[in-house]
């Protein structure tokens, strides 16, 4: 499947979630998405990532909308039920969009997404800006692990007292930033030397080819998104 197909489905799905008000329907959709996500490779890790964002959000929404602190301070809260229902709806919508996005991410690789971006009609500079941070941040994380090991060997302790940890932050970040920024000029020279952005259209070898039905699906999704956005505005 082409990497953009999942992305194309994501947009109308998010808008549809905004359009549906019935919490039970939203909950069923969310449950289906979560089951599908759990069945993917590394499903457990992805579910955990989902929960890490959505559980704190649930707590925050309950606290703010439920006005439990008001009750605690001895005030009377009316319409708590209605306020909580609105919060639940909001939470379900965010939860659905994130679950769907994670499901899409589980179906692609960084490599195929990068090639698809470079092969798309986006200007090469935009494709570069979307794709290269993914590659670079993977390198930086590996580098960070190496640096933090080296700093730990020199006595930078992540369990140190508060103020020492602030100094550790700079001690760890500085080599990473200096190393990356010193390379910026060379990276640019390497791109220039390969005639990057010298033509409006570039060729991309082994670009993921969308099937005919996928193309139709993209257009269908765009149309559906338009209709849904219109109906949301009209309401």
């Amino acid at each position: 499947m082409h990497p953009f197909t999942g992305l194309a489905l994501l947009l109308p799905l998010g808008l549809l979630a905004m359009r549906i008000d019935l919490p039970s329907l939203l909950a069923v959709a969310l449950a289906l998405l979560l089951v599908a996500l759990g069945m993917r490779p590394l499903g457990g890790a992805r579910l955990r990532q989902w929960a890490l964002v959505l559980l704190p959000l649930a707590l925050g929404l309950t606290l703010v909308h439920g006005r439990y602190l008001d009750s605690w301070l001895g005030q009377v809260v009316d319409n708590r039920q209605a306020a909580l229902l609105a919060a639940l709806r909001l939470w379900l919508r965010v939860a659905i969009v994130l679950a769907a996005a994670l499901l899409w991410l589980s179906s692609i690789t960084t490599a195929s997404l990068t090639r698809a971006l470079f092969a798309s009609r986006l200007p090469p500079g935009v494709a570069y800006l979307l794709a290269s941070p993914l590659l670079l941040s993977e390198q930086l994380k590996a580098r960070l692990a190496a640096v933090s090991e080296a700093q730990a060997a020199r006595g930078v302790d992540v369990a140190a007292p508060f103020f020492r940890r602030w100094r550790s932050l700079l001690a760890l970040a500085a080599p990473l930033v200096v190393w990356t920024l010193s390379d910026v000029g060379e990276r640019a020279a390497a791109l220039d030397a390969r005639a990057f952005r010298s033509r409006l259209r570039r060729t991309t070898l082994d670009a993921p080819q969308p099937a005919i039905w996928e193309r139709w699906l993209w257009y269908g999704c765009a149309l559906l998104a338009l209709v849904l956005a219109g109906s949301l505005l009209w309401r």
Binding site: Y128, L129, S132, P133, L136, S137, T180, D183, V184, R187
Partner: peptide
Amino acid sequence: LTLMSAGIA
């Protein structure tokens, strides 16, 4: 452009 990519990372 390469600086921006580094900044995002």
